[in-house]
Design a protein around this nucleic acid. Structure first.
Lengths: 244, 244
DNA sequence: CTCTGCAATTGAGGCTGATCAATCATCCAA
DNA sequence: TTGGATGATTGATCAGCCTCAATTGCAGAG
């Protein structure tokens, strides 16, 4: 059975962090004490001063900006094992707990001195900065050049890849955020997200029993969609054929 | 006459830099020697190592990424007075001279030591990093939530604001880049860019005699469009009424 | 248990912007 | 001058996604 095989350790990916990542951060905090956050709780707002840097121990964080008229743009997510809050000047965007979260905070002063003295930490920060920059450019491509199917496929395979990197099954993906968050992240509406999910379902790309758990049944085709799939036959229409 | 009044010093904005900005950088270079680049010349490619940091003395630089199938995304532009090339790891995107450019280079080694010793320089770098991050988030909003008219209005008022900041007329804007570059930057096609320009023209928002020079005849309405204009009456359709 | 509110799904219809194609203007080389 | 290349403009058509609207499912409060 596809489903059973895919179901290996599905819930763990967003609730526990990879153990080998814990030590280098906790050296500089108060014994690794964590702050608990409820779902939908604001962590900081755009314009707030940077008081501390946090290590995400469990849960998912959502970053977003809001226009005057209420239109919202989700600029990214952070998952267990990510550091959040470092940067220059005041915060540029809001941060909110998507689900119940545990954050391990470090004061800005500690962070500054730790960066200077601890190579593990500074390497980690550099690597993550670089990854974030790279993914933000990639995100621009997603938003400007991809269809709804390609965008959602890109999103799902991204989560799948993360699972694989952490040693979990790449075929069962947890969706911790709501449809609104995905929509505002991918530049679409919740209706289009929902419709695209059902399109994927009806064509055997994914299985879904509840909106938060997706079983990827055909990772190869999904990944092809996410890539644009035009390297295969040189035609954009191929992308649509794969989804349809 | 609108046109004559608006035509004050139009060509200067992209060919000369503001004089007060020159000194703190040249301290650390070889006597301020400049490298000349022809229009469309590649400065560096994605994946190249960072050999040097450059100060843009004149001309315009375009940053972009290309997908396997040739689809291109312009992630931003740099103008005289901007520094380009600093960051972590290898270059994340291609850089190309939009028009004939003069760049003043500084070796990476010089840059690293200069940052540590020269407050003027490090302040400048911090300020520009912060500005770039902020504008990249704003760009996400433009791409996900704005119509073609709003996007182009946003682009034009951005150039206009830059002119004002440098002491030039905000009503006459030079467009140094081609329509393709604007299209790939705003996530639209050249046809839509062209059509939107003519819509703006026919409704008296701008005047244009050659594709590279735009006279803004109604900056207020253009700025309202760029903001989304929905703070006025709370309705998205207002944006379209302003353009149409 | 019902009622309420929130989130997700599904349907119908319309509009924006892409696609395909033709034309025009400018520049440069032969 | 002519010819070709490049870039910009304009037109006609259509598909993809948004908008508006109704429905379902679920969870918590009373």
């Amino acid at each position: 059975m596809h489903i059973l095989e895919a179901n290996t350790r599905p819930m763990i990916a967003f609730t526990k962090h990879h153990p080998s990542r814990t030590d280098f951060f906790s050296r500089h905090t108060s014994n690794g004490a964590c702050r608990k956050l409820a779902a939908r709780q604001l962590i900081w707002a755009e314009g707030d001063l940077r008081n501390e840097v946090c290590f995400v121990r469990s849960g998912t964080v959502c970053f977003y900006k809001v226009l005057m008229d209420g239109r919202r743009v989700v600029t990214g997510f952070a998952y267990p094992g990510d550091m959040i809050g470092f940067g220059i000047g005041p915060h540029q965007r809001n941060a909110e707990a998507v689900q119940c979260c545990k954050l391990e905070p470090m004061t800005m002063a500690n962070f500054q001195s730790a960066i200077a003295s601890d190579n593990d930490l500074s390497d980690f920060v550099q690597a993550q900065s670089s990854r974030e920059l790279c993914s933000s450019y990639e995100h621009l491509m997603v938003l400007t050049k991809m269809t709804a199917s390609e965008r959602l496929a890109h999103f799902l395979t991204g989560l799948s890849t993360r699972n694989r990197r952490l040693g979990y099954s790449p075929n069962s993906v947890l969706i911790p955020m709501r449809r609104v968050d995905i929509a505002d992240y991918l530049g679409l509406t919740i209706e289009t997200i929902s419709r695209t999910f059902t399109t994927f379902k009806t064509h055997g790309l994914i299985g879904m029993e509840d909106p938060c758990v997706v079983f990827i049944l055909n990772l190869e085709r999904l990944a092809a969609l996410a890539r644009g799939a035009c390297d295969e036959e040189g035609s954009v229409s191929v992308c649509r054929k794969i989804a349809a």
